[in-house]
Write a protein that binds this DNA or RNA. Structure first.
Lengths: 349, 349
DNA sequence: TTGTATGCGTTATCAA
DNA sequence: TTGATAACGCATACAA
């Protein structure tokens, strides 16, 4: 029983074939095997075939750790998602993965679940992996951890969030514009008393959408008090239901005729609460969401929503980080996409 | 200008500090630094502190590739998702990640999107990373690639699918039972003409749910023709809408009073199509889905669905693969969970 | 308690 | 065209 077989019997896991094994089987040196892998042109046809045959027979698989150790850097990116259960982020992730794959980079997907401690752990792991770059939708875009990582040499691009200054690449969507579009649409449809449902306002997104909303409201010359801010604890379906109850509890005089929700999850919760308590959407309450996730269009009353170019967001983020790693003259860029209103029955009737 | 600074100026990326750098800064040998990291008890308090200080000052981050190369194996798992846009799979993924993190393993998330070629690429990448184990919801559970990977020494656990024989670990849910539960529920509610919406039937899941459905139908002594099979191209919201149109197009005599959909996406699409064309759910058409994703409960008419223990599925899969890697006496196990009917308004009225 | 030396698998340099 | 060898960063066996 040879050494490999012994270790197999003991550990139950055969030691994978290395270039050395391939070399000895093909009767060549390791350098030649490496050349077959990396510069096949430098190798004669005959030896190349022998080496390739040996690789096939042994089931040779390149050891990425060793390559990476030797190269001093990896060939992989990572995306740290804020919330994997929100289809918005999975779409962004797919955009990133596609673009990375085209550049023959592999992508690690992680998610923080909005938990700063977990985020830190994930980032630490990724740094240990020496990933080329980290794409992240951070719990707190201002966090110092991000700068520390960059100071240690790992490139970072912020996704769907922004940061003051031009010291870091980011891709985001103009949330103020999105908020404006939503509220202008409601005003156009004749609504003069509107609720803004969203929170916590510590989230930049929520703040910006609210800012856009109130700006549109002011610009239309409507009384400030008639744009009612309903704060939520999270951007979830549950909280949307709660908001629905709160709206229902308002006196007829104070009750809004339309609600603009800071994301689609809230809107779906609100929609459900409204419909199941017998209110008609949009006649009794018009609803507009944000993100235009697939389920927005799939709702019983298809949801008007503000669409963000999700896939494109991901692709651009990947492009930016690849430029940052490859291009010595890289300039940091903050790409801001333009959202688009998708009007459906929940506001059109 | 020293070497590190030069490379920094040229590449824009500082070379990360290594154990050697830490050692020289702390005035000790690399062995001691390594001991501080791995067996701190063997090191005197004073030197330990000096080393730790040096690490902090240099921003030392362990190089996982080097550790892995040395150790001969990695400390990471991977889950290859079939469809990242289906909340069911993201929930499974979170279960896996949690369990892995508890065992201080990191998890790579990938997704094949149902594309066999892409799946192969992902698996190749993961093999190159020498991950300890691969959890996968395969495009084709019978595929030989899986066996090849295992033959080369990487452990594999199949998630939410099964395979003949006991040669591989798997976790799944009893889909036949799920199908039975759904149809029994509809029969209990008085339905005597029911549609089964799902496809393609090349998916084991779909087959099993259909099998359970027809078994329940037969067991109730109902005429075979009155359980109508409506095949779909995919398990998507779109296809659910199409199915809705097909149901609406049937003559009153042949039209089912209830539909059992092979997953919630189909059910949501069907629900929407029904509601927007003025049919009442469940009075005109009762609907039951499968998976009980969050959006099932959030639908305008909350959806009755067959719930699968998603998180638990993931946790168990992680447990199995950890056992397979750690325990020399590991026995392959096929864990089958029991689904549960969650009755809501879409069938109760 | 600490230091020295070796090897993991790969790639690149240099010599043959 | 091919072969021998050093180096990447870390962990360990062994020596001091």
């Amino acid at each position: 029983m040879n050494r490999a077989a012994m270790s197999r019997a003991k550990a139950g896991r055969p030691r994978p074939a290395s270039v050395k094994d391939v070399a000895s089987r093909a009767g060549v040196s390791v350098g030649t095997v490496s050349n077959v892998l990396n510069r096949p042109d430098r190798v004669s046809e005959a030896t190349r075939q022998r080496v390739e045959q040996a690789m096939a027979e042994l089931g040779f698989i390149r050891n990425e750790s060793a390559r990476q150790l030797r190269a001093g850097k990896s060939r992989s990116l990572a995306y740290v998602m804020l919330d994997a259960s929100n289809p918005f982020f999975t779409d962004v992730a797919m955009g990133i993965e596609d673009a990375a794959a085209r550049a023959s980079m592999s992508t690690f997907l992680c998610h923080s679940g909005g938990d700063a401690a977990r985020e830190r752990t994930q980032l630490q792991l990724l740094e240990q992996q020496r990933v080329q770059g980290i794409l992240i939708t951070p719990v707190d875009p201002g966090s110092a951890v991000i700068d520390e990582i960059r100071a240690r040499g790992t490139h970072v691009v912020i996704v769907d969030r922004t940061r003051q200054g031009d010291t870091i690449c980011s891709v985001s969507v103009d949330d103020e514009l999105g908020g404006r579009l939503a509220v202008e649409h409601l005003i156009d449809r004749g609504h003069r008393r509107v609720a803004f449902v969203g929170g916590p306002h510590s989230i930049g997104q929520v703040r910006d959408r609210w800012a856009g909303a109130s700006e549109a409201w002011r610009a239309a010359g409507l009384p400030e008090d008639d744009l009612v801010r309903l704060d939520t604890e999270r951007l979830s379906v549950d909280e949307g239901r709660v908001a629905g109850q709160r709206i229902a509890g308002l006196s007829t005089r104070r009750r809004p005729t339309a609600a603009f929700c800071a994301n689609d999850l809230l809107a779906l919760g609100l929609l459900q609460q409204a419909v199941t308590t017998g209110r008609r959407v949009p006649d009794d309450l018009a609803i507009i969401g944000y993100d235009d996730i697939e389920f927005a269009a799939a709702a019983a009353v298809p949801l008007t929503s503000v669409r963000q170019p999700r896939q494109q967001l991901g692709e651009t983020a990947a492009r930016l980080i690849l430029d940052e790693t490859d291009n010595p003259d890289h300039q940091h860029e903050s790409v801001v996409f333009t959202p688009e209103l998708v009007a459906r029955r929940s506001t059109l009737g």
